[in-house]
Nucleic acid binder design. Structure first.
Length: 727
DNA sequence: GTAGGGTTAG
């Protein structure tokens, strides 16, 4: 009993200072008072008869239950009551299930069952089932269902509704529906729970179907069930149904509360009607934080991050969710520097990030590809107690891989106590992007030895590794085992990898066969990868065909037009090149501008082609001249065959020599410590000439050079690249 | 008569 004695009663954490908030003061005092009462009961218990003692303890539990801070204490007192009133256990259960304490509610249930007498009635089940739902404890839920049936409570509408919710929350949507269908009376709450179950399971077509049934059975929908329906329309991209519901809401004068507001705005945005969402948002007389955050997300998802920022900046009071939404907006729109800048601003204001924020920040850092920045974020994560969470570790693996450090990615992986399919897949993709196919395959087999089942994403990583290393046979075998042994239906990305695998290996006929016989309609990516392979292997005719198929699907696709003109340029068909270029000018399409980044002294420096904005531009170009003449002595000659414009040879050479990655490299040679590794991140694919250039510099200057291009890493050392020139 | 519905937005 020592743990309950007065000696251990908590004192104020700051005895010399007055309590800063009144709530802390009252709860502390109340707990002290309760403990004093408890001590009195214990002291006098020998003089009291057992039933009045029990009554006093029950009163004590009731008082503790009033405050969420005292639930643990209440649980301990509850344990001392031999036969608690069912009424008391029910109240106690309700409190525990409403709070984030579902496991404790189940504990109470266990104890009630073990005590004398029955201890349960029909009122016990709704809170109990709610706790089971929160804990997703299916086995316990089924046992409770059995007990309810045995006691004949399973035809009570409240109990039945609880059972529907329990099965839905445990992912057993069919069982939920079975209970639902058997009910003789369903009200709006029952329908709402069933509809929510379908929403959670992603079965949005069923949601709309069920809503029609609900209306047909004359149950009047309220704002809660409507907000679920509206959100389902958004997920199902069913704009016409969404609009109809919106009209229904207006016609029936249903209160549009903030939940419904944000559901409507999000629905319009995800159905492609952002203008409509904005209009609706403008019409709202009071713009609360949640609806504004929904708008920030809506614009971010469309990549219209400037518009998101405008709404963000108009908000006077912003909470963590809103900051996180804006940060992730930048991270996912490939604007990592803004994301990290915002993260700093947020911290200056004293807003503490949570796990969701950190995941966006880590992802931003992965996009940026800056290793020093990555190390800093990793330290921050560990220092602030995020490091043990599985999703965070998984994100760190990806971050280090994308920042060029396979070793550090692997260190994070090795240190993890628990690894899930995402951890393994992240490592496999890491090996794949660094051209290390053997380790990718080893990990793929090892994860299965450890009974982790690969998923569709894992196979993308493995096939990608095969394709980037020319492992044609292995790739074919794995592709068929994915279908036949792992029962995964291949999606576009898997066919994309296979087309890539065959195309790179110059098996273009077979690649085309696959495209023509696959059960899915080929998309832009598939034609694109066939087209790129044709460009590499000089298959003009097929390349032109693939490019034209692609342009049928997406007439303004800049990549297709660029590659088409490259194919023509390689054949010196300048008239055709001119035609493509005119088309691009006419339609206002421009090739994405190449840029390269390099980190130096904790700063990220960015270069465009032939750009002179850098404050050390003179030195950089001087270095470039020096490097070029050094390399010429070992046989380097600028390779201009990829320059798509009809220029004099000398002008073409000038263009190639000013590519942004060469400028970044020269800056690295000037500014980074002698002998250190030079890491460059390029947004497009590296060109053949720059690739040769990097290899030669690694030999002549004795420096390790790591270049991340749009699709993979090139580690150049001693004149050799890790990609073995197979990219 | 003590009971059932919104992880609202990241």
């Amino acid at each position: 009993m020592s743990s309950l004695s007065l000696n251990t009663v908590a004192v104020s954490p700051h005895p010399t200072k007055p309590n800063t908030t009144t709530t802390t003061a009252t709860t502390t005092t109340t707990l002290i008072q309760l403990k004093q009462v408890h001590a009195q009961i214990l002291r006098r218990s020998s003089n009291l008869n057992p039933s009045s003692n029990s009554l006093l303890l029950q009163l004590l539990v009731s008082s503790c239950t009033l405050s969420p801070h005292h639930l643990d204490y209440a649980l301990r007192v509850f344990d001392q009551i031999p036969t608690p009133h069912t009424h008391l256990s029910n109240t106690f259960l309700r409190e525990l299930s409403r709070k984030a304490e579902p496991k404790k509610a189940l504990l109470v249930y266990e104890r009630v069952r073990r005590k004398e007498g029955l201890g349960v009635d029909r009122f016990t089940f709704p809170p109990l089932l709610k706790a089971v739902s929160k804990a997703s404890a299916l086995a316990e839920g089924m046992e409770i269902h059995g007990l309810a049936a045995k006691l004949g409570f399973d035809s009570d509408p409240f109990v039945e509704t609880g059972l529907v919710g329990m099965y839905a929350a445990c992912g057993r949507i069919l069982e939920a529906r079975l209970v639902f269908d058997k009910m003789s009376h369903r009200d709006v709450v029952t329908w709402s729970i069933m509809i929510d179950g379908y929403c959670q399971s992603g079965l949005f077509d069923y949601v709309l179907q069920l809503f029609e049934e609900m209306k047909a059975s004359n149950v009047k929908p309220d704002e809660i069930v409507l907000s679920k329906i509206v959100s389902a329309c958004g997920h199902a991209k069913n704009l016409s149904y969404g609009k109809a519901i919106h009209e229904f809401i207006t016609e029936n004068n249903i209160v549009v509360d903030p939940h419904l507001q944000s559901a409507l705005v999000t629905m319009y945005a995800s159905c492609g009607s952002i203008d409509f969402a904005q209009e609706l948002f403008n019409k709202m007389s009071t713009k609360n934080l949640i609806v504004s955050t929904a708008m920030v997300c809506a614009y971010s998802k469309l990549g219209q991050v400037e518009n998101a920022r405008m709404i963000f900046d108009q908000l006077v009071e912003k909470d963590l969710v809103c900051w996180s939404a804006m940060i992730s907006g930048y991270a996912e729109s490939d604007r990592p520097q803004e994301a990290l800048k915002l993260f700093n601003e947020m911290q200056v204001l004293g807003i503490k990030p949570d796990q969701v924020t950190m995941l966006s920040v880590i992802s931003a850092c992965a996009h940026l590809g800056a290793l020093d920045q990555a190390k800093w974020i990793h330290l921050y994560v560990d220092k602030n107690g995020f490091g043990r969470a599985l999703p965070i570790s998984n994100a760190l693996i990806d971050m280090y891989a994308k920042c060029g450090s396979l070793e550090r990615a692997r260190q994070v992986f090795e240190k993890m106590r628990r690894k899930d399919v995402i951890s393994w897949t992240s490592m496999i993709s890491a090996f794949a992007m660094h051209g290390n196919a053997n380790d990718a395959l080893n990990f793929f087999y090892q994860m299965q030895d450890e009974k982790i089942e690969p998923n569709g994403v894992t196979f993308v990583g493995v096939l990608y590794a095969c394709s980037h290393s020319g492992l044609v046979e292995e790739g074919r075998r794995i592709f068929s085992s994915m279908i036949n042994e792992h029962n995964i239906t291949p999606k576009h990305e898997h066919y994309g990898c296979m087309v890539d695998l065959l195309g790179r290996a110059n098996l273009l006929r077979e690649a085309l066969d696959l495209v023509e016989t696959m059960p899915l309609a080929p998309n832009v990516v598939i034609w694109g990868s066939l087209m790129a392979a044709c460009q590499v292997h000089g298959e003009t005719e097929l390349g032109e065909f693939a490019a034209k198929q692609l342009l049928e699907l997406e007439p303004d696709h800049d990549g297709a037009l660029v590659i088409l003109s490259n194919i023509y340029a390689k054949e010196r068909r300048w008239n055709d090149v001119g035609e493509v270029r005119n088309l691009m000018n006419y339609r206002g399409i421009s090739k994405e501008r190449g840029h390269s980044r390099i980190e130096s002294n904790n700063e990220v420096h960015e270069f465009l082609m032939a750009d002179r904005y850098h404050k050390q531009a003179d030195q950089i170009y001087e270095k470039l001249d020096e490097v070029v003449s050094e390399l010429k002595q070992v046989g380097y000659a600028p390779n201009t065959c990829r320059v798509m414009v009809d220029l004099e040879e000398e002008e073409k050479k000038e263009m190639v020599l000013c590519h942004s990655e060469k400028l970044a490299l020269c800056y690295g040679l000037i500014s980074n410590a002698k002998g250190s590794c030079i890491r460059i991140v390029k947004n497009l694919r590296i060109c053949e000439d720059c690739h040769t250039f990097m290899k030669l510099v690694s030999k002549v200057y004795g420096r390790e050079i790591v270049v991340r291009d749009r699709t993979r890493f090139h580690h150049c050392k001693n004149g050799v690249c890790s990609c073995k020139d197979y990219w």
